[in-house]
Design a protein around this nucleic acid. Structure first.
Length: 722
RNA sequence: GGGCAGUUAGCUCAGCUGGUUAGAGCGCAUGACUUACAUUCAUGAGGUCAUAGGUUCGAAUCCUAUACUGCCCACCA
């Protein structure tokens, strides 16, 4: 054995050794067929970029659980995959094109799709190689991509079921529209930011009485041409007499009514609210209640149209300036006040989100399922309430309930080109829309007209990844597939807390809805990785740690250990090069302690000698340590388990036990007992360290004298010390 | 506006179903090339566990306030 542990020499060979064994595949494990299965479906990384250090966290934690359970004799499946990541990938890809001086707009739809396809295939391969470098013991024979034919088929079947159950509808609603990306988003993709603006007080003259006015407060005077009413609270004594009167809108001089609605806050501004149903969600709601016209004055490129009168052709900020000028000139602007409020922005490009009315597909979250007294929302809430699904740490259950209780219908239409096309058709004659998944329809489902058009939108990427736990386990038999029967519900969903709503909640909803069963029993939420100054890692800050570079210098085991220790559920973790270096040293410590033990076992027969009290005490203390470590692992306390191992191995086993036995062996005092203790403890330590630091421990295991010539004797499937 | 978390050694954090002198890693100081390992070893310094009350025989750990810090959620125009 070398004097220093050299990971570069070892890691690749060891991974190949495992792969060749086939033991990543649960069907090939030499365990009893009746032994309990254990399954984690890997959260699919986006196939649009190499992995970053944050991915290292999930890979390490999941591989840790997987290896632990495999060693405990469970038929263990860790199913890998990648995500096409619709909008995200399109944005990344277009940036790449830009760098080359090209534009996605130059390509037609098919060309664009094909180019992005190739791009993701390339990245898929990179991601796969990186996962291997990290030591991920996942079953590559079951690898999936969210755009695989079978996955898409399942996604369509879920969509069709929702449609047939009346839970999928198309409707003109206010959506969050990004004028730069020209697509609508769900609530979750909107980032609210505090912004300093002005609150403009604008007066509208009453039609019948020349000198009477009603004043509203607005931050968006440019939307005045879209006003179709002024609303006041019916309880507001100031305005009671004005209800149902007509006023003149001050920019395009249209006549609009004053109406009464309970949602108007008496105390805010003047207590009178201008209603622009086409460009504000509350206004839209009020507009619906009062059957007001929706007057869309902004087009999808972010410019005002002819309905905006004098503002036509301007963008939002130009229109705002011009509207103020007009209002000032005709005496309608009473005053303006500085005003700080929250404004929605696109989470990607930070453009201001424009609430717009669009025809989109929505999933009804609160509508009752057929023949059931429950909605999709209820299904998810109940599963967590009843404890069928446990979220770790449990404080996130509160957050989950809060979000679920206030959930809105989910807009799953995206106006982009990369993704799973929505299998929907619109009839030009009767204006109805319908879903058809197997073949392209020739006629309208409702009026038999042949004048139908395909929907050009794609599905929100979370709609497909929301079905990941069952879609990945299905084969042609769907619910009856062997893998589905064996591994579903899966055991643990391990992911970051930042996608609890985006992803975890949707998996729970869709999983229970489609299969009738929960998708997983536990949700373990890890924290985000930060640098040593607690800063979020990002390329623009230049503080990113490239996992590959780290592995190259310090080894995958060191990186894994650094990502586990100090990492507790739901809390962000801090990582620095010094920390990784420390665990590189630990790997070397394990190597050298093992080297010493192995070199002193030449004349050891492996039989258990009679031990004196002192030696027995050493073994009893070790038993306790083993129990503590196992218990911590069972309870998701990975950091504590790792720390205990680290500390025991270095400061008890290496510093004390080896030192003592070294002398005894040298002086030939109770030598057999000394050898026995070293052998026993080393082996069990290697076993327990294996899920944390798989490469070094397996490499050492292969050098243990007793196993030199035996086939199949891999640490990866060795039984966990009891 | 609502909610959640954090505040423990110079730094990063454990510990928190209450119980002996409060722990780790890194850093620091001093001394060692002792044939498993200098990616090492030995020894050591360093904390009124944010503040103020309370419960208790006993609190870093439970309760109540307060102060910072961070995060999440929300259609007051």
């Amino acid at each position: 054995m070398d004097k220093v542990y050299e990971h570069q020499k070892t890691e690749k060979n060891i991974y190949q050794l495992w792969e060749k064994s086939g033991f990543f595949n649960p069907d090939k494990l030499p365990f009893d067929k009746k032994s309990k299965p254990f399954c984690i479906i890997m959260p699919p990384p986006n196939a649009n970029a190499p992995l970053h250090i944050g991915h290292g966290v999930f890979v390490t934690l999941q591989d840790l659980m997987i290896r632990f359970q495999r060693m405990r004799g469970r038929r263990t499946l860790w199913l890998p995959g990648t995500d096409h990541a619709g909008f995200e990938t399109q944005v990344v890809f277009e940036k790449e094109l830009e760098k080359q001086g090209k534009s996605g707009l130059e390509m037609n739809r098919d060309e664009f799709y094909k180019s992005v396809w190739q791009y993701t295939q390339k990245n898929k391969k990179i991601v796969r190689d990186q996962l291997k470098l990290l030591g991920a013991s996942c079953d590559w024979s079951r690898e999936k991509f969210t755009l695989d034919k079978d996955i898409q088929k399942t996604v369509y079947q879920t969509l069709e079921k929702l449609w047939k159950d009346g839970l999928l509808y198309r409707g003109k609603r206010i959506v969050n529209y990004c004028p730069k990306h020209k697509t609508a988003f769900s609530e979750l993709e909107v980032k609210y930011q505090e912004q300093k603006d002005f609150l403009y007080f604008v007066r509208y003259r009453l039609k019948e009485e020349k000198n009477k006015w009603i004043t509203v407060a607005t931050t968006r005077p440019e939307t005045i041409p879209g006003d179709t009413a002024i609303a006041v609270n019916p309880k507001d004594n100031r305005y009671k007499k004005l209800i149902n009167k007509i006023v003149i809108e001050p920019i395009t001089k249209r006549e609009i009514p004053i109406i009464a609605d309970k949602d108007v806050e008496i105390d805010f501004g003047t207590g009178a609210l201008k209603i622009t149903p086409a460009h504000d969600s509350l206004d839209f709601e009020i507009g619906q209640r009062h059957h007001l016209e929706t007057r869309g004055t902004l087009d999808f490129n972010g410019y005002f149209n002819e309905l905006a009168g004098p503002l036509a052709g301007l963008n939002v900020s130009q229109a705002r300036e011009k509207s103020i000028t007009i209002l000032q000139a005709n005496g309608s602007l009473v005053k303006k006040e500085e005003y700080v409020h929250q404004v929605g922005h696109c989470y990607k490009c930070n453009s201001r989100i424009e609430p717009m009315i669009m025809d989109q597909w929505f999933i009804a979250m609160t509508k009752l399922l057929p023949k059931k007294n429950k909605s999709l929302k209820d299904l998810a809430i109940n599963a967590v309430k009843k404890g069928e699904i446990k979220i770790i740490p449990s404080r996130f259950e509160k957050v989950f309930f809060h979000w679920m209780n206030n959930i809105k219908d989910w807009n799953i239409s995206r106006q982009i080109r990369w993704g799973i096309p929505i299998p929907a058709y619109h009839c030009e004659d009767c204006k109805e829309s319908f879903i058809q998944i197997d073949k392209i329809p020739k006629k309208c489902l409702y009026c038999q007209s042949k004048n139908i058009k395909k929907d050009t939108d794609v599905l929100d990427t979370w709609f497909s990844s929301g079905q990941w736990p069952y879609a990945t386990l299905f084969d042609k038999q769907g619910l009856k597939s062997k893998d589905f029967k064996t591994f579903y519900p899966t055991d643990i969903m391990e992911t970051g807390w930042d996608i609890l709503f985006f992803w975890v909640a949707r998996m729970i909803i869709l999983g229970i809805y489609y299969t009738g069963k929960i998708p997983f029993k536990y949700v373990y939420l890890h924290g985000l990785v930060r640098d040593k100054d607690r800063q979020k890692m990002s390329k623009s800050k230049g503080n990113v740690i490239d996992p590959l570079a780290v592995i190259d210098v310090y080894g995958a085991d060191a990186l894994r250990m650094a990502l586990i220790i100090g990492n507790t559920a739901g809390n962000d973790i801090v990582i620095s090069e010094e920390k990784i270096k420390g665990y590189r040293n630990f790997a070397n410590k394990i190597w050298n302690a093992s080297r010493f033990v192995i070199s002193n076992l030449n004349d050891y027969d492996g039989k258990k000698p009679i031990l004196n009290t002192k030696d027995k005490k050493i073994l009893i203390a070790f038993e306790k340590t083993k129990q503590k470590i196992t218990k911590n692992l069972e309870n998701f306390k990975f950091s504590l388990a790792g720390e205990a191992l680290y500390h025991y191995f270095w400061h008890t086993f290496a510093d004390k036990i080896i030192e003592e036995m070294k002398n005894r062996i040298k002086e030939n005092q109770d030598k057999k007992q000394a050898q026995y203790i070293l052998d026993i403890i080393l082996k069990d330590c290697l076993k327990m360290l294996h899920p944390f630091m798989p490469f070094a421990t397996e490499a050492i295991w292969q050098k243990l004298p007793h196993y030199k010539n035996k086939k199949d004797n891999l640490l990866i499937i060795t039984q966990w010390p009891q």
